[in-house]
Design a protein around this nucleic acid. Structure first.
Lengths: 106, 106
DNA sequence: CTTTAATTTGGCTATAATGCCAAATAGCCA
DNA sequence: TGGCTATTTGGCATTATAGCCAAATTAAAG
């Protein structure tokens, strides 16, 4: 890997790493419907609000979401519609894997 | 998040996490062309062969690649064509981010 | 200006990921 | 068999991530 290539794949990996957590995936899924504020997302996720906030920061730093303040609330919205297609590949992989597991038992 | 949802997103995250590393992304990119053996990938990556082997194990455990042994060599091939589309979203995100960075400087 | 609600940040501990070395395994060939 | 090549595994130190608490910030009200 040349230095240039390395930089390229590091940049890609940074984005993918931001998605590589169940809570963050869940939130991205929710945000694909419509924007939500931190307190709403916190209620949906069911974790500590500071944890949720930090997860959102990760998504924001990766450029996947953006914020809009409304009074004391902060609304997050998805920045990249293509992410959902991206995730459908993960879904497909999961199904493939289940299929193979079934083969082993029958 | 219900337990069921949690399980669903954990499964998805496991797949995405497997991709969340520059070396693994690079190899997936290479493997999208054709299968390669570990030694070939090691030469391309330029890391220790044991490191490369472990990265390939991560991809294999996630169901993203599969192996075929030929003599002493082990050839890895991509199992999911959709992964490349998946990655093009990462690319788009990167470009978006660069565009915004440029705005800040002009 | 004080209070209150929403959110972020700092700090800490526990857990997981990374990458290298040494050693083990597997298959070919002399 | 013995040696050689390709690959994997075990172990270990380093670094990064996750999640919680306490404290700081920000903005709206009263």
């Amino acid at each position: 890997m040349t230095l240039k290539e390395k930089a390229k794949y590091q940049a890609r990996a940074a984005i993918i790493k931001a998605l590589a957590h169940p809570t963050r995936l869940f939130m991205v899924d929710k945000l694909s419907e419509k924007p939500y504020c931190v307190c709403e997302l916190t209620a949906m996720v069911g974790d500590d609000i500071t944890t949720v906030s930090k997860h959102l920061t990760v998504l924001k730093n990766a450029g996947l979401v953006a914020v809009e303040k409304k009074g004391t609330q902060v609304f997050y919205h998805l920045k990249l519609p293509c992410i959902m297609g991206f995730l459908s590949c993960a879904e497909e992989t999961m199904k493939d894997r289940l299929k193979e597991q079934n083969k082993l038992f029958h």
